[in-house]
Amino acid sequence: MATVPILGLKTHSQKVCSLYKRALRNLESYYDRRNVFRYQAVLLRARFDQNAKECDLRKATELLKAGEEELFQIQHPIPKKFAQSPGGVAFERVVTPPDWVLDYWHPLEKAQYPEYFKKREERKKEFIAMWEKEYGQSDKKNSH
């Protein structure tokens, strides 16, 4: 899904592309028939293309600002989101915790399942041995 760029410095063209994508997604929320949406999307593209050749960066920045403002003013109150994407209804509904979480258990918590953790440590050693047998030992210089 299109999101507002927040990390790092973005070039002007990246910002315009991001605005375009978000504007398209917003249009999609309003026009739910495919043919109607396509028609509106072409109109939107034409508006962007009109100023695509703008060389004066001051003017281009102003246009971008106006575009952001316009998008904000007609932001759909119930945006169309994919169910499993962030903001969707089923986002993170089924979460499988990664295996390393168990390594960060408190020793007291681990002590409640002594046999399992004992076996887990053995398996770790076996896994390292298997790895080293197959791929060789890692170079000590490269390790942190």
């Binding site: 309003y30 026009y31 739910d32 028939r33 043919n35 109607v36 028609y39 003013q73 007609i74 109150p77």
Partner: peptide
């Protein structure tokens, strides 16, 4: 929803 029809939601945005 017809291709040329106005979007009623955007016209009455604040009320909607």
């Amino acid at each position: 929803m017809k291709i040329y029809s106005l979007n009623k939601f955007i016209i009455t945005y604040k009320l909607s």
